[in-house]
Computed example of a mutant assay.
Amino acid sequence: MQLAFVLVEPKVPENVGAAARALCTMGFGQLWLVNSDLHTRPEAHWLAHGSDHILDNARIFPDIEAVRNSAELLIGTSAKPRHGRSDWHTPGELAGVLANKGNAVATTALLFGREDRGLSNEELACCDLLTGIPMAVSYPSLNLAQSVMLYAWELSSARTASTDRSEVPGSDPARLGALRERLEHLLPATDTPADGKLYQWIFEKLPLLSNRDIGFVHTLCSNIARKIDKSS
């Protein structure tokens, strides 16, 4: 699994450079930026300290929708749970979720919001999972680069686990994304309305499935599709 750290409209070039250094220190190399060119600023390179190659190879996206098109799993950072969702995870819990994905996910994007206001509610609603760092104060806040360093340290174990697992011959490395598309087409055919609670629950739980469970649900979808074809 490739894990990309995504900075959404960062405000301070030094934070971008420090984030690149944190990624390099923990063995990551994918830095993506949304609507920003701060990685080109001298101040960013001043704090990169040997991580200039990460800044030089950073991918730039116009918006989060473009990031969504380049990643099977989109994870948003938030200081606290939003939208009444139950899929908010600490960094340590998130490491376990990603380690279980095996080769079912080719690319995961972890989004970090703006220094002054984080990610908007609309942006968080686009994410498959939410994550946050528990704080001991009533108004939680961490420097952007500090947050990136903490997640890079916690998720390095998930990266190692994914790298150590052997590929299954003939497996599709984007099976989670393919499963999401299948369900989007299949559920309406089973009279499951897209605005219903069951539909919402299915897509909230989908990103939590392990590599093995994703394969089982693929098989279930195939069986349901055959039943539908026979009855039509």
Rank of each mutant, 00 (worst) to 15 (best):
G177H: 15
N15C: 03
L124G: 00
L183A: 02
M1S: 12
P140W: 10
E123R: 00
M135E: 14
P173M: 05
S51M: 07
G29H: 11
L3M: 12
D172Y: 13
S231M: 15
V34K: 02
A71N: 03
S86R: 13
A20Q: 05
S162E: 09
P62H: 13
G102A: 06
D128Y: 04
G27V: 07
Q2A: 12
L183W: 12
V97Y: 01
F112V: 00
K205C: 13
I54K: 04
C221V: 14
E72G: 14
R159E: 13
T131L: 01
R85Q: 01
L124D: 00
G17K: 05
V6L: 06
A136H: 15
R175P: 09
L111I: 09
K197F: 06
L206Q: 10
L183M: 12
S70A: 15
R114K: 12
K230S: 13
R82C: 02
P42A: 12
I133N: 02
C126H: 01
N121H: 14
L73I: 10
C221S: 14
E115I: 00
A48I: 06
D213W: 07
N211D: 15
A174R: 15
F61P: 00
S232C: 15
E181L: 14
W32Y: 10
I228G: 09
W32E: 05
L150Y: 14
A104T: 08
L55Q: 03
P62K: 14
D195A: 10
L33M: 14
I75S: 05
N100T: 08
L124N: 00
A145V: 04
E122Q: 06
K197I: 08
T190F: 10
S78I: 01
L176T: 13
S231Y: 13
G29L: 08
R212K: 14
Q146H: 15
P42V: 06
E93V: 09
R226H: 11
L111K: 03
T131D: 01
V105W: 11
